[in-house]
Write a protein that binds this DNA or RNA. Structure first.
Length: 238
RNA sequence: CCACCAGUUCAUA
């Protein structure tokens, strides 16, 4: 079954969903939970979220057990459809099912709520977690940032460090982006300038892009231009 | 010693 599943995944990665689906349909006894998960992920990753849900419903109709992997592929599909109702539905199923690697499941939930614009629910999930990893923090910070609560995002960023969680390069993308959405130019500069020294993060294109975005949105166009001009060329190349 | 059957956060557009 493993080889069949791999083949399916290969097709989904090429966008050949019909072929993948055909393989899926032709599987009989070797079709396992991974086959289901792969097909669902195939739809989800190819902007066909509603078909992902269709297949998921089919799975439940057959009383097959879902697992945490499936949940973490379905939740981003909810955000894609801005379907907070579906998300809440899955949330309640998660609570019932008591899925194993909870951290990842909660992280996905945080992100789903945040992307659907419901930062309060996102925060609630975050607050109730017994263990949080860097992704949990990244997800809430990002959630506040994209919803315009830059100061809250920065506050959490600080708090995270106080808790001894080491920010990674993704954290800093979230933080800079939060500054950008909230017009926090000064803060953004400060953070950007301390990327390598205090955060041990090698600045990447994304960080530079955040800064350009930040300056541009704030109307500091000349400064943005200057910034781009002074960019290292290895960044420019990427 | 280890190589992968699906999996959460990652700017702009």
């Amino acid at each position: 079954a493993a080889v069949q599943n791999s083949l399916m995944v290969t097709y989904t990665r090429c966008g050949e969903l019909e072929i993948a689906r055909h393989l899926f349909d032709e599987m009989s006894c070797e079709r396992n939970v991974i086959s289901w998960g792969s097909m669902i992920a195939g739809y989800a990753h190819n902007q066909r979220a509603s078909e992902a849900f269709e297949l998921f419903r089919e799975m439940q109709k057959r009383r097959l057990k879902m697992n945490w992997v499936i949940v973490t592929t379905l939740l981003p599909a909810c955000s894609y459809l801005a379907a907070i109702k579906q998300g809440k539905e899955i949330h309640s199923q998660i609570v019932k099912a008591d899925l194993v690697p909870d951290v990842m499941v909660w992280n996905a939930l945080i992100d789903m709520y945040a992307k659907c614009g419901n930062v309060d629910n996102a925060r609630q999930v975050f607050d109730r977690m017994s263990k949080r990893d860097v992704v949990s923090w990244n997800a809430v910070i990002g959630g506040y940032g994209t919803n315009g609560y830059g100061e809250v995002a920065l506050g959490l960023f600080k708090e995270m460090q106080q808790e001894g969680i080491v920010p990674d390069h993704i954290t800093l993308i979230h933080v800079l982006s939060a500054c950008s959405h909230a017009g926090l130019v000064e803060e953004g500069w400060q953070i950007f300038n301390s990327l390598s020294e205090t955060f041990d993060v090698r600045p990447r294109v994304e960080h530079y892009a955040c800064m350009v975005d930040l300056l541009g949105r704030a109307g500091h166009l000349d400064e943005a231009e200057q910034f781009i001009h002074n960019m290292p060329k290895e960044i420019e190349a990427s």
